[in-house]
Simulated assay, not measured.
Amino acid sequence: MDKNAIKQALIKLERHHIDEAEMKYEDFLMGNLLDREEIVDQDDQSHHRQSIEVSDQLEHQAHVHIEHLEALNNISFEATEVVKPGAIVSVNGRCMIIAVPKSPFTIDGRHFMGISVNAPIYRQLAGKKAGDTFEFNNKKFTIEVVN
């Protein structure tokens, strides 16, 4: 498994999310700016305040993806036998990349899920090796591979 290729795929995916979030933010702003030449009533002002909240949420999403991109660039994806950031871990048949939270995705026909060091399951995985077992949410898991 080429971990550098996986890291580059994650970086590309994160850049795509940044572009998408920024485009949604810009589109939203363009459609929701108040026209200062028109009469603005209380209802317009109320909608404007709600729009500001939504625009703040959209802007926050872009910043989160930028933080994820920075984290990916700073994590070493070198081979490892111990679960730590940059490790790819197979647990009960599922592959997890310890880096940033990421919904299930596919690279070269293989399914992965990204988890961060802040994920509750990572606390159970950290420092473990292939063959180790642990419990999480009252279920038993076996670490099959750490790379």
Rank of each mutant, 00 (worst) to 15 (best):
H63S: 09
D19V: 04
F134M: 11
D132I: 06
D56Y: 08
I115S: 06
Y122Q: 02
E37I: 06
V100I: 15
L33H: 04
L34W: 08
I18Q: 09
Q57N: 03
M96Y: 15
M23C: 08
E135H: 14
E14N: 12
D27E: 08
F77N: 01
E26Y: 01
D2Q: 05
V117G: 04
N147T: 13
F77S: 02
T106Q: 12
E53D: 05
D108V: 14
A9S: 09
S76N: 08
E53P: 03
A79S: 09
E59A: 08
L125H: 09
N147M: 14
N118L: 15
V54P: 00
S103R: 07
H68G: 02
K84H: 10
I115A: 06
H111E: 10
K84A: 12
G131A: 13
N73A: 12
F141Y: 13
I52A: 01
M113P: 05
S90L: 11
K84N: 11
G114M: 14
Q57K: 05
E81W: 12
I98D: 00
Q124T: 11
A62N: 05
D108M: 10
D43G: 01
I97N: 00
G109I: 02
M113L: 14
C95A: 12
Q8W: 15
Q45F: 13
Q42P: 05
E78T: 14
A99E: 07
H60E: 06
H16N: 03
K102V: 14
G114V: 04
P104I: 01
K24A: 00
F136C: 07
L69P: 00
S90G: 03
G31K: 06
N138M: 12
H111T: 14
N32H: 09
S55G: 03
V145Q: 15
M96Q: 01
E26P: 04
L72N: 06
K128R: 15
F141V: 02
Y122W: 10
V83T: 09
H47T: 06
L58N: 01
M23S: 10
E26F: 07
L72E: 04
R110N: 10
V64F: 13
F105T: 03
A87K: 04
P104E: 13
D43L: 08
V89N: 02
H65T: 00
D43K: 06
E38T: 03
A62W: 03
D27W: 10
H48A: 03
V54L: 05
Y122H: 10
K12I: 06
G127V: 07
V117Y: 15
A62F: 00
T80Q: 03
T142C: 13
S51K: 00
H48W: 06
H65M: 03
E22D: 10
S90T: 10
D41C: 01
L72D: 13
V117L: 13
P85A: 01
P120C: 08
I88R: 04
F28P: 01
D56Q: 05
P101N: 11
K7Q: 07
K7P: 07
K140V: 14
P85Q: 08
G114I: 05
G93P: 01
V145A: 09
K129N: 12
V40Y: 02
E20W: 14
V82Q: 07
L13N: 05
I88Q: 02
L69K: 01
